[in-house]
Design a protein around this nucleic acid. Sequence first.
DNA 1: TATGAATGAGTGTTCATTCAT
DNA 2: AATGAATGAACACTCATTCAT
Lengths: 206, 206, 206, 206
Amino acid sequence: MDAERRVQRRMQATRERIVRSALALFAKNGIYQTTVEDITEAADVGKGTFYEHFPSKTAIIQHLLHEGFEALLRQCRSEVGSARTTRDRVKRLLRAQLHFFDERGDLLSLFHQVRGLLKLRPGEASILQKEYKRYLRFLAEELGALLEGKRCSEAALTQVACAMAGYVTGYLSYRVITGVNKNTTRDLRVASRIFLEGIERNGWHE
Amino acid sequence: MDAERRVQRRMQATRERIVRSALALFAKNGIYQTTVEDITEAADVGKGTFYEHFPSKTAIIQHLLHEGFEALLRQCRSEVGSARTTRDRVKRLLRAQLHFFDERGDLLSLFHQVRGLLKLRPGEASILQKEYKRYLRFLAEELGALLEGKRCSEAALTQVACAMAGYVTGYLSYRVITGVNKNTTRDLRVASRIFLEGIERNGWHE
Amino acid sequence: MDAERRVQRRMQATRERIVRSALALFAKNGIYQTTVEDITEAADVGKGTFYEHFPSKTAIIQHLLHEGFEALLRQCRSEVGSARTTRDRVKRLLRAQLHFFDERGDLLSLFHQVRGLLKLRPGEASILQKEYKRYLRFLAEELGALLEGKRCSEAALTQVACAMAGYVTGYLSYRVITGVNKNTTRDLRVASRIFLEGIERNGWHE
Amino acid sequence: MDAERRVQRRMQATRERIVRSALALFAKNGIYQTTVEDITEAADVGKGTFYEHFPSKTAIIQHLLHEGFEALLRQCRSEVGSARTTRDRVKRLLRAQLHFFDERGDLLSLFHQVRGLLKLRPGEASILQKEYKRYLRFLAEELGALLEGKRCSEAALTQVACAMAGYVTGYLSYRVITGVNKNTTRDLRVASRIFLEGIERNGWHE
DNA sequence: TATGAATGAGTGTTCATTCAT
DNA sequence: AATGAATGAACACTCATTCAT
C-alpha cells in the first residue's frame, strides 16, 4: 500500500534527522557533552523517539562511525579507481581522504574522539575498533597494490597505512587548532610529496 | 624550621601521587571514565584531598597537559640542540618526538583525548588550546630555522608543523590500534625519510 | 450478518490471546517487570491493539483478578455443592482451593502480587480490594453455613475466612519457595485436619 | 578521637533515617511506587546520600529483609526459649510470630511484597530467597524439636513450616484487607488450636 | 479494528564538588 | 593539610499511553 510506504518514509526521515543532529552535536560539543536530549531536541522529536531508532547512545556512535568510514572508503575507491600510474594512485588516494575530511569536519572530529576511547571500555571498544581496522586494512591493500614488485612485508604495509591515516587525520585535526585556512590544493601537494617521495624512491622495504 | 619543610615535602609527595594516578587512569580508562574518586583511591588519599591540590578535575588535566608538553619540548630541545646539519636536526626532532611518545604512551593518549575536545566548552578550550599551539609554534620555529635562506611563509611553516605533529601523533596512535610492535628505529627511518625528502628537496614554499 | 459475527469472534480471539499472555507474564516475571509491549508481543498483536481491548494496564490486572476469583469461587461452589456432612463440606472447600491454586499457579502468583499492593494507590486499590473481599465473604458464608447452630459472630467468621484464605494461599506460596514437590493429597489431609479439628471440636466462638 | 566517633554516630543516624523511611514507604506505597527520592526526601537527606549508604534500591530491600527476619527470629527464639511443654512451645512460637507481625505491619507488608517476586528476576531472587528459606528452616527445626520421638520426614517438616509461615502471614495480611480489628489474644487462641490439634493428636507423619 | 511510531514524565544511578571536623 | 559524608544537578534509559493511518 501507499500508506505503508509513506509511514516508512516518514520514519526514515525522523531517523535521519536524529542521525544528522547527533553527528553535528558530537562534532561540535563532543560525545560526552552531548546528551540524548540535546540530540532529540535538535532533531525536534521526543526523547523517547531516539530509543525507537537506536537502542543506546553508544549504538548511534557506532552507526555514525560505520557509515562514516563507509563513505570515506567509498570516496577513496571511486577516486582511485580510474588511476593509472602509481604516482597518480597515491595522489588520488590522498586527495580522496583530504577532500573527504575537509568537507566532513564532523566525521574527522568523531573519528578522532572515538579513537581516543579505543583502548578503553573493552566491551564496546572492540566493536568500534573494527571500523578503524577496516580503514587501515583498506589503505594497506591499496598501498600494497602500488608496491607490487617491491619487497614489502605485511607489517611494513600496515605501518605505512598507519602513517598515511595518521598523517591525514592528524594533520587536519591540528590544522583545526591553528585555524589556518583550508587550502586543499596545497595540502595535497605537500602530502603527495611526502608520501610519494618515500614510496617512489625507496619503497618501504624494511 | 625543619618541620615546615617536612610538611612541604610530604604535601608535594601527595600531590605527585595524585598527578601520577590521574595520568595513568586517564590514559588507561579515559578522562571521562575516570572519576576523581578513582584517582584519589589509586593515589591512596582521601577524596577531599584532591581538591586541596587542584581546584577541579579540569585543572589537573590542564596541569598534566602543560607538564606533558613541557617535557616533550624539553626533550626535543635537548635532542636537537647539538645537531649540526639540517638533515640531522630534522632527524633528531623527529626522533625526540617518536621516542618521547613511545615511552610516554600515557601522554600520547591524554594529548589525543584532550585534542578531541578542543573545540568544545569555549571557556576551558582556550586554556587547553594554548598548550597545543605552543607545541606547534615550537615545531614551526625549529623548522623555520632549518629552512633559513629558503622562502617560506608563516602559514606554510605552521602547515608543516601541523603535518609533523599530526604525522607523529596520528601515526603512533593508529599504531596502538593495530597492535603492531614498536620498532622505533624503523619508525624513525620512515618518518625521517618522509619529512627530509620533502624538506630537503623542495622546501615547503608555496 | 455472518461477517459481523466473524469479526466479533476474531476480536474475541485477539482479546483472549492478550489476556492469556498477560497472565502468564505477570506470573512469570511480575506485574511490574511485565510491560504492555511484552504482553502484546507474546500475544503476537500490535502494541496499540492492547488499548483497543483494555483502557490501561491496571484494567487488565483488574480483569484477570476478577475472572480469576470468579473461577475460584465457581470451582469452590461446584465442589462443595454436593457435600452432605459438615466434615465433608470443609474438606471439599479446602480441596477446591488447593486444587485450584495447584493448577493455577499463575493466579496464585497474581493474587499474591496484587494483594501486596492493596494498601497503595487509593484510587485503584479499592477496586481491586473488592475482589479479595468477595472471596473472603464467600468463605465466611460457607463456613457460617457449616456452623449453624453454633454461636459465631460475623467478625469471628471473617476471621476464620481470613485464616482459611491465608492458610491456603500462604502455605502454597511458601511451598513454591521451598521447591517441595506438590503432593496435593497430603496437603489436603494436613489442611483438612487443621481446620476440621478446630471447627468440629470447638466451633470458632469467641 | 571523640570527633571521629561523633562522625560515625551521625552517619549511623543518617543511615537509620534512610532505612526507617524506606521501610515505612515500602510498606505504605509499595516497593515499586516508592522512589529513591521519596525515601531520601522522607529521611530529609540529599538523593546522593542514599547511594553513600546503599549501592542500589535492591540493596536496601535486601537489607530490610535481612534485618526484618533477623528480628523475627530473635523474637521467636527468645519467646520459645523458656517453654517447657510441647503445647507451650507451639503456642509461644505462634504468639511470637503473631505479635511480631502485629507490631510490625511494615515488615509483614515488605515480606509479602518481596515474596511475590521470588520466582522472578533470577539473579536477585536467589539472594532474597535465602532469607525466606532461613525462616522456614528455623520453623522446621523448631517443629522438628517438638515432634521428637514421632516419625516425621524432612519434607513433612518443611511442609508444616510452610503451613505455619503461610498461615500466620497469610492470615494477617488478609486481616489487613478486611479491616477487622486486631485481637491478638483471639488470633492466638485460634492459631494455637489449629496447629496444636494437628500436631498433638496426629503428629505430622506422612 | 489493528497498528506501531511518537511521546515525555519518571526512575535509578553517577559524580564533581563542598564543608564540617 | 587531610578527610569523607553529604549533596544535587545531570543523564541514560524505560514504558504506559496516544494517535494518525
